[in-house]
């Protein structure tokens, strides 16, 4: 493990970095989404005559959304279980931020070299999502409850995909420490493994970030806003903040596990940024090309795709392990 002082500094530095990167990823996601729909999306350079009135750029649009929500009333219904309703967003944010500490960023090793960091990181991600389920359940709103139920089902299957993916990689490299996995070398079978388990992790990301075929928890045409229906003001802002961090965490985890050397040293930063942008681009392509699945379709789809690919992935990982 690295020097504790450096680790502390890195951890303190990681929070703004993760926030900024998460906001930029979400902005890129929205912008690309808009361009695929033949429109402009949040403007990068505001028109010269409007700039003094409404600001020069909208690159920080997701951050403005969150900040605005902090300046609004918070409404709490009396049917809600108060304590759970109020504290769930905070816990969700807490776990999302602490998950960011276990994932290496180019130039920052953070806590990724502690033993079993892969297990810790995956548990923190799971906990963060769990609290986005608990809050809505406590809100007492039927829409929140339906959204939370869908979220649970989606969470279970996407977790299957997630776990199969990260543990086949862990099996192939024989370690549960993220920094060691992120520093592993390349070989012909490991490229194949990266493909299969990368696909699994990508599919898991779709479910966790509610990208289009799997956005049924937030299906605004059917169940208002799903889990977030009863949330308003600051609490909603904290959920959005937690989602911003989670976006960063999943993208960083994908690059750390699937594209090995990219998050080990500061010199790999351009490659890391490029990979992240490509990943967000791919997420956007999936989002714009797909309609929303029904929840049962999504379950079948996950089982149909994930189990064969997961098996192939495990066989490759086992093969690499035995040969090595």
């Amino acid at each position: 493990m690295a020097d504790p002082v450096i680790t502390t500094i890195e951890i303190i530095l990681m929070v703004p970095v993760a926030l900024i990167l998460g906001v930029l990823f979400l902005f890129l996601f929205r912008k690309l989404n808009a361009r695929f729909q033949w429109r402009v999306g949040p403007v990068i350079r505001m028109y010269s005559d409007l700039a003094p009135l409404i600001g020069k750029t909208r690159i920080w649009q997701p951050l403005y959304d969150i900040l605005k929500l902090f300046g609004k009333d918070t409404i709490i219904t009396d049917v809600a279980h108060r304590r759970l309703f109020v504290y769930s967003p905070y816990f969700s944010l807490l776990f999302a931020i602490s998950a960011a500490f276990f994932i290496p960023f180019p130039g920052m090793e953070l806590l990724s070299s502690v033993p079993y960091s892969l297990v810790i990181a995956s548990y923190l991600i799971i906990s963060s999502i769990l609290f986005t389920i608990l809050g809505p359940v406590a809100s007492g709103s039927p829409w929140g409850a339906i959204g939370a139920r869908r979220e649970v089902e989606l969470f279970l299957v996407s977790e299957l995909s997630f776990v199969l993916s990260i543990f086949s990689i862990a099996l192939s490299s024989g370690t549960l420490v993220i920094s060691e996995i992120a520093g592993r070398g390349w070989s012909a079978p490991s490229i194949l493994l990266s493909l299969t388990s990368g696909l699994l992790l990508f599919v898991a990301m779709l479910g966790k970030l509610h990208i289009k075929p799997f956005d049924m928890p937030e299906a605004e045409a059917e169940i208002v806003a799903g889990p977030y229906t009863e949330y308003s003001g600051k609490l909603l802002g904290i959920y959005f903040l937690s989602k911003t961090f989670l976006t960063y965490v999943l993208v960083a985890l994908f690059i750390a596990l699937i594209l090995p050397p990219a998050s080990t040293s500061i010199f790999w930063l351009p490659a890391w940024a490029f990979a992240a942008m490509v990943l967000v681009f791919l997420l956007t392509v999936v989002q714009v090309l797909n309609p929303r699945y029904r929840i049962n379709n999504a379950l079948y789809w996950y089982v149909k795709v994930v189990i064969p690919v997961g098996l192939v992935s495990f066989i490759i990982a086992f093969f690499i392990r035995v040969v090595a």
């Binding site: 929205r30 808009a34 729909q37 033949w38 429109r39 402009v40 999306g41 949040p42 403007v43 409404i54 909208r58 649009q61 403005y64 959304d65 605005k68 609004k72 409404i75 605004e220 045409a221 208002v224 806003a225 977030y228 229906t229 009863e230 949330y231 308003s232 909603l236």
Partner: peptide, 21 residues
């Protein structure tokens, strides 16, 4: 819609009145 794309200025249509300004 795309022709007058209000999202340029951050305007979004939300589904729940609790999120609206």
């Amino acid at each position: 819609a795309p022709r007058f794309d209000a999202e340029r200025f951050g305007i979004q249509l939300v589904a729940s009145p609790r999120h609206a300004d």
